[in-house]
Amino acid sequence: QDVWRYAHEEFEDDVQDVFAYKFKEYVEDNSDHTVQVFRFGELGESDDIMEQTQAGILQFVNQSPGFTGSLIPEAQIFFIPYLLPTDEETVIDFFNNSVAINEMFPEMYSEQGLELLQMYPEGEMVITTDEVVRSPEDMRGKNIRTMTNPLLSETYRAFGASPTPLPWGEVYGGLQTGIIDGQENPIFWIESGGLYEVSPNLLFTGHGWFTTALMANQDFYDGLSSDDQQLVQDATEFAYDYIIDHISGLADDMLEAILERSDDVTVTRLDEDEIQAFRERAPQVEERFLEMTGDRGAELLEQFKADLEAVSN
């Protein structure tokens, strides 16, 4: 008979929203509790809903680790390019088995009063540009919009581009007028934001996956009966299993929808040699990450690489 409030950072039918509604469905089918889902903007932006969860007003929050950087700097590790596997199957393997994700991160979140329930991938990052790009040389001089984050900026600097921070509301207009020449986002955002209309050259570099995380207020979670804790865990697993299925078809469907609607769109998938040209530039971002996070970051990075090794073989 309790109302549990759950906020995330995306809009209707986006990956986080689908996850939230699956969670809600399971909880409501298997208990007397109800779950109220709040989408982006309804209770503020990403940082706001995180604070509200820490304050205990919200019980659940879905925030991408990249945005958690101001609270847990190590969480920005997901911005290091080519740290996650490039193909989908290995990525899912990685999320299921990684020690870093399933053991180290929960500890860090718990220091901030958060019970980390699940980290999950939303989709591969895709770069869109005004011209077809295949190499770091092609990237030279291009203003690529990034979120305001030092590691993302470093990534695009490493790739040869000029990282240009721009608030989200100005991205579409900025691409249209040419103040920026490109941007990066998972494909479903490129579709729903109509970004392909104004930035039609899609580039799959395999450099990263947009990752996100569901967490609960820790005092709330600790105060639940063991049955209810189990319910939360089961609901999370139910939603996670569904979402893994959901995203595997999603990228292709979205790409198909985009190609159907626009004749200007080009799709470039880099081959292994071309990827190598970008991958060679990744260490400079790693260095920046280590600079920002010190020993704990180093330990996490090492574990990440070991986990990656484990699933790749």
């Binding site: 809009f11 209707e12 039918d13 509301g169 579409y172 207009g173 249209q176 729903s192 934001g193 109509g194 209309e197 104004v198 609607r261």
Partner: peptide, 18 residues
């Protein structure tokens, strides 16, 4: 155009901004 209100509506509702 450009209208920030339309951009936000377009993204939320999945409507073509163009």
């Amino acid at each position: 155009p450009p209208s920030i209100g339309m951009i936000i509506y377009g993204v939320i509702s999945g409507t073509s901004i163009r």
